[in-house]
Design a protein around this nucleic acid. Sequence first.
DNA 1: AATTCGTGGGC
DNA 2: TGCCCAAGAAT
Length: 388
Amino acid sequence: MKQKDLLEKNEIIMWSEEKIRDFRATLLQWYDENKRDLPWRSTSDPYYIWVSEIMLQQTQVDTVIPYYKRFIETLPTIEDLAKASEETLLKLWEGLGYYSRVRNMNVAANQILEKHEGKFPTAHKDVLNLKGIGPYTAGAVTSIAFNQPQPAVDGNVMRVLSRLFEIDLDISKASTRKVFEEMIRRLIDPDRPGDFNQALMDLGATICTPKNYSPENSPVKEFNASYLNESWEKYPVKKKKNKVTEQTYYTVMVKNKEGEYLYKKRPSKGVLAGMHTPLMIDRKDLNEEGWKAFNQKELYDSRLSQELEQIIKETYDLKVTVNEQPKGVVAHVFSHLKWEMIVFEAVLIEELSHSSELKWIHADRFDEEMFPMPTQKVNKLVNTLTLF
DNA sequence: AATTCGTGGGC
DNA sequence: TGCCCAAGAAT
C-alpha cells in the first residue's frame, strides 16, 4: 500500500505483467550473450561478492580487477579479513581511495565472526546491518550470492530506468533511490534476480552510458519510452555538482641525517583519515602580509621559509631549516576539494621532543609503506629530481 | 537532507 | 583544462 503510493505519487505508470515478463526475457537473453567476464562472476561465495561490491563503489571495473585478485589471494576468508592489521588492509587498498571502505569491511568481518559464527549472513536485514553495507550493496550481495529478489539500485540502474520510463526525478537526491527500488521490485525476475540486477548494470555500463549514448543500439529499445518519444537526451535528470573548494598548503618535506623523510599521521576523521602526509601548513594560517607580498608573483624569499620554520617549531617542536625556494608544486583533486601543495625541502636540525604523530621513513622503504596519492606525488617530486 | 569521504579515465 | 563520471555509505 505504502509503496504502491510511492510510484503513483511520482506519476510513474508501471508496465503490465505481460510487458514485464517480456522485458525480463529480453534483458536476460542479451545478458546471457553479452555479459562481461569478470573475476567475481565465477564464484557464488558471498565473501568474494561482497569484496567486489565494496571495491566497485564509485570505482570503475578496470581499476578494481587487479585489486580484487590481490585482495582475495591475500585474505581468502572472512576470518583472514577480520584478523588482518590495518597496515595490511590499507596497503591492499592503496590507490583505490575512499579508505574507510576497507576499515569498515574489517569491522564487518568481525561483526560476522561475533554475530553470525563466521558465516556471511543470508537475511537481507542482517546484511544491511554490517558496517559499510548500505542499500545497494545489501541488495547486490543477497541477490547475486543468495538469489533473493532484492533491488540493487546504483547509478547505472537509475540511469537506465530514468530513460526507460522518462523519470523526471533528480537522481542526485537521496530520496530518489527508493522510487527506483520500488520499480525494481516490480520488474525483477523472480527466478534470476542476481542476473537481472547485473544485467541492468552491464547495460548501463556498456550501452546505456552517460555519454555517447545511442538508444537505437539497446537490446531493450522497444521498452524505452524516452527512445520512442525521442526525449532520451533529457534523461537522467541530475543536478550539477558544486565547484570544489581550493586549498593551498605550504608542504614541507623534512629530511634527517639518516636520509629519512618526515610524515605526520592525519587525524582519525576527515580527509585521508589516519594516513601520512608531509607537514602541511595552510597558507591561510600564515602572516598575510608575508605571503601575499611575494607569493602572488611566484617569488619566494627568506621571509616565507623563516615563518615556516617558526610554525614548525611551535607546532611540532622541531628545529628545521627550510629551503628558500620550493622544489615544485603538486596539485591533487578530490571529489569535493582541491589541494595545491607548494613543496619545500627542509633539513632537521634538532628534534626537541618526540611525537607519536610523526613518522620517519626512508625513501628506500616507500614501496612498503602505504601513502595516499597526494603524498606519493610529493615523494616523487622530491625524489626523482634528487636523482640527477 | 546535504556533505564528506579518493582516484583515474574520458572527452 | 576543467568537468563529469564510476556497481555508494556514513554522518
